[in-house]
């Protein structure tokens, strides 16, 4: 009475991505609808320059959201990414303006400083919440304050400026109208997608998000994987800091206030479940696009700041309701 296996010829990864595509279909359609709407109702939306603008504008949020996807997949949350980004930017800003280095060395130093700072903060977040089994919400809320305070302390609350010209070049470089910094973000998305779908590490992250106890009883070190997820999130905050610096050519200690919420919104709109275990980084990519297109389009259409804020809120709530129904259909 075994019904099997001749039909089961599709390789598992493509099955996985077929499901991913299905899960993302709703959000993809929503994005398409937004794009069509703004194309019809505004003059400049679908122009090469504006598309370049949108890509530039979503880059930082996308980078942060990629790391956030890892943390949310294991059922955690990281509220500190905005502050950690500012801290990393300030540390890197100090590094890049150190006297006695050539531009190439200074830039390398800055990139290393930013990512190390981010990784360190993420590691602390992960280690504390994993070892004491504490809710990451509150640990990262603490880190939000620590990193912000550290950013102000290190910078003495001053904007750091005058970076090497080459760094600025990198920040505004384009390939066929596509900002290089956005390509960096895309590479991160691809890497995250690969890790989550094709590696033992990714598999176990999904497992932990779904049923931590089952993974633990299967002999896996749940703590280690949790710490790794938060560390990745810190790393992307460091990369976001580099993008910030390259794009604006300054480091501001008050950068990134509220960015964590935008990153979380991108992840959730992208269909990743806030309780963990379900979702994909491709969804996150689409979620970041929705937020970016909305912010851009609503300005082009001439809506007031306050209306804009309200509509963004409505979209977030709508996305979560959508997710609720997705989960329900997945269950039956």
């Amino acid at each position: 009475m075994t019904l099997q296996t001749t039909t089961d010829t599709l390789p598992a990864p493509s099955r996985f991505s077929v499901r991913t595509v299905l899960q993302n279909a709703g959000i993809g359609r929503a994005l398409l609808a937004l794009i069509i709407f703004f194309s019809v109702f505004t003059e400049h939306f679908l122009t090469p320059n504006n598309i370049t603008n949108i890509l530039t504008q979503i880059t930082i949020n996308l980078v942060l959201a990629v790391g956030m996807t890892f943390v949310i997949l294991i059922g955690g949350i990281d509220l500190s990414v905005g502050s950690v980004m500012a801290f990393a930017a300030v540390v890197a800003g100090k590094a890049i303006t150190l006297p006695g280095f050539g531009p190439a060395e200074a830039i390398a130093l800055a990139v290393i400083a930013a990512t190390l700072t981010g990784v360190l903060c993420g590691l602390i977040n992960g280690a504390i919440s994993a070892y004491w089994a504490l809710p990451s919400f509150i640990i990262t809320l603490g880190m939000l304050n620590i990193a912000r305070g550290a950013a102000l302390q290190v910078s003495d609350a001053q904007t750091i400026y005058s970076f090497p010209y080459a760094f600025e070049e990198f920040g505004s470089a384009m390939i066929y109208g596509v900002p290089v910094v956005f390509l960096v973000a895309l590479v991160l998305v691809f890497m995250a997608w690969f890790v989550l779908n094709f590696t033992v590490f990714g598999r176990l992250l999904y497992g932990i998000g779904n049923n931590e106890e089952a993974v633990r009883l299967a002999g896996q070190s749940v703590r280690r994987y949790k710490i790794a997820a938060f560390t990745i999130c810190g790393f992307t905050a460091g990369i976001a800091a580099v993008v910030y610096m390259a794009r604006l050519n300054i480091s501001s200690p008050i950068a990134g206030i509220g960015f964590e919420l935008n990153a979380i919104a991108a992840v959730i709109i992208g269909g990743t479940s806030l309780s963990g275990g379900r979702g994909s980084v491709i969804g996150t990519l689409l979620g970041a696009f929705i937020i970016g297109v909305l912010a851009n389009g609503l300005i082009l259409i001439g809506l007031s700041d306050f209306m804009r804020q309200m509509i963004t809120g409505v979209v977030i709530i709508f996305a979560v309701i959508l997710d609720h129904y997705r989960a329900k259909y997945a269950a039956t």
Binding site: N53, T56, Q57, I60, T159, Y244, R247, L248, I250, S252, I254, A255, G256, I257, A295, N296, I299, L300
Partner: peptide, 12 residues
């Protein structure tokens, strides 16, 4: 009051 947001808002 923020640089990054001004950059985004003004581009749009």
């Amino acid at each position: 009051w923020e640089t990054e947001e001004a950059n985004t808002v003004f581009s749009n």
